[in-house]
Design a protein around this nucleic acid. Structure first.
Lengths: 368, 368
DNA sequence: TTGAAAGCGCTAACAG
DNA sequence: CTGTTAGCGCTTTCAA
């Protein structure tokens, strides 16, 4: 028993009803703005509510209505600046509609993902936004099916199971490859991120296709998976350059990995961008403050969060099924690539690329 | 009505009881690991639970037990890398003890803080961790008193109302002043952050006292409040240097502000650290990647989160009252200060400071 | 337009 | 050791 004064007793519907001299139901109707109450009674009840400072107990309501006015948001790692941006977007929409966000960090771990989805269930959330889940479909689907509404971020899926909101990562990867190729880079390396990342696979697809189309030889031997963190970048880049010193263009899973990679390259005496052009992905706020400033792909992350929450609210009401929102990424050219000096090898070494220009405009597209 | 298959009906205690051929209470006892059930019956119930995949409904339990097995965590802005670190610490402890985190972002806004605290109440959280709240005591206390247990981060308070876990920000500020003074800086400027920030006030205290003790003249005219963001830093630094061009040491509310300030200084042609030494606060992961790498104060943020959650769990059980945890900060010396070139003015210009060394060791202290 | 009764899923407090 | 009863605060259903 706390030494503190006990918090003021909870005011219940009954208290308000007693004070207003009406029944529970009348109060309930007023609270929920439902018809069937005379305007005079309604007024009297309103006064009682104000006087007592009544607030509905969401838990009790949830028990009956099987709803808790909350939505679960699962993100891999709030510590990566990419996700907080998304959280803000989702939260702003959720709060606006009277919902509370239950946020869970799953630290890129499948077990934590399972736990989180279960916990959401226990708390009777009305819907779930799952951000880049790492679980396999077989494990993920049964978990998702237990929820009334689900939206997946950056992962395509059966629209029966969940809606999806994503960035066109294949395009993002293509933009980067194209840019590096224009600069005269010919030997591409790629730190691909966590092996189970959907986004990572899509980017790999983009790299594969775009290099093929441009006639660049691209070998998966110059590919290393890594943790999506600065440390992951340091390690993976070290390993890759040990094995494949000839790489002159290094693509990274995200900006954190790129930061680590640039650190590792510096330690090895490789200059960025003169010897090796490095690109990241996400355009976190700090990318432009790195040394050199990082060329990367800017994804409309805040909007991604908003769209996800909006779609979830729709699905919670049984609307918006089968809609798949795809947001377009944008290339941000900065100093980690523009000073690249092509060596003899380059067939069509251009060297002069436009600085600080973006190619693909933002925007969105709806499919299906 | 969703087109999806309806999620599997919820399995309740009654289902398990029926299957095991016992009463509700027996199942409840087994679920909660309570004594008073024969080992054979217990086994039978366990099997039924597994077979049916029963999970307790926390909402229903909460209604009776007035608890929802969740704790509310209110942070000003997840977008500032400082807070996610803290969130991780708190979350890890909470999850370990079977609690879920309800996270809310209050975007440095008093209204959102009020809303968040109320929402926590509506959801019957078992306790609240409030991170650097901006609300005044008169507004904050009544809100807090409605919660069973509260821990404030970075804000001292009446232990009857809430526990407190904080960094010794006065010491942090003193370490910075001392360091800058040793380098030969003599004219200090300070971007103080949001006016209502408790942490900001403590740091100001540290600056005031340390400068006085060192015999440096420090005027509040060289002080500007600012938003705790990169943009805030750009603006405030611009304004300050317009007015006070003689400043040779710029202290900033946090690392984001410092990033903005360095940007603004660069635009004005002032070199960092040669002309102006700049320091931040928090040591976010990216501070070492800035150009130049930022000298700053490293706060044990993850641990701060852990301690806050730990203390809250204690308080929720009526223990640990009156304990106030204070964590010690540490000086991280980097390139944004070490190359400072003192001009004639400095009386005891030293110039040679140890690189990459820290003065105050980490550690913690309990008072009261 | 209003109210009374029943019950959401669970647990505390007693019986047996 | 096990079961019964009552009720958490609210809403749905049906009756007045």
């Amino acid at each position: 028993m706390p030494a503190t004064d006990i918090a003021t007793e909870r005011i219940t519907l009954a208290d308000v009803a007693a004070r207003a001299g009406v029944s529970l139901m009348t109060v309930s109707r007023v609270v929920n703005d439902r018809p069937g109450v005379g305007s005079e009674t309604r007024e009297r009840v309103r006064e009682a509510i104000d006087a007592l400072g009544y607030r509905p107990n969401i838990v009790a309501r949830g028990l009956k209505a099987a709803s808790s006015r909350s939505i679960g948001l699962m993100v891999p790692d709030v510590t990566n600046p990419y996700f907080p941006e998304l959280v803000r977007g989702a939260e702003d929409v959720a709060i606006e509609h009277g919902y509370t966000l239950l946020l869970t960090n799953v630290i890129e771990d499948a077990n934590r993902e399972t736990l989180a989805l279960r916990t959401f269930e226990d708390h009777m959330v009305d819907g779930v936004i799952a951000c880049s889940p790492r679980l396999d479909n077989e494990d993920l689907y049964p978990l998702l099916k237990r929820h009334r509404a689900v939206v997946l971020v950056n992962r395509r899926t059966d629209p029966k199971i969940a809606g999806s909101v994503r960035i066109d990562h294949e395009l993002g990867a293509r933009l980067l490859v194209r840019h590096l190729h224009q600069l005269g880079c010919r030997t591409f390396g790629f730190l691909t991120g966590p092996p189970h990342s959907h986004a990572g696979r899509e980017r790999m697809l983009g790299v594969d296709r775009e290099t093929r189309e441009l006639g660049i030889e691209f070998s998966h031997a110059r590919t290393v998976p890594c943790a999506p963190t600065v440390e992951g970048g340091v390690e993976a880049a070290g390993e890759l350059f040990e094995r494949e010193p000839g790489i002159d263009a290094l693509m990274c899973f995200n900006d954190l990995v790129a930061a680590g990679a640039m650190q590792a390259l510096k330690e090895r005496g490789r200059r960025v961008p003169e010897d090796v052009a490095v690109v990241g992905y996400d355009d976190i706020v700090f990318a432009r403050m790195f040394t050199p400033a990082l060329t990367t792909i800017k994804a409309p992350t805040y909007e991604l969060g908003q769209q996800a929450a909006g779609m979830l609210l729709d699905r919670m009401q049984g609307r918006g099924h089968g809609i798949d929102i795809v947001l377009q990424p944008e290339l941000m050219v900065r100093d980690s690539t523009v000073g690249f000096q092509p060596t003899s090898g380059g067939k069509t070494a251009t060297g002069r690329a436009p600085r600080r220009s973006a190619t693909a405009a933002g925007g969105r597209r709806r499919s299906r």
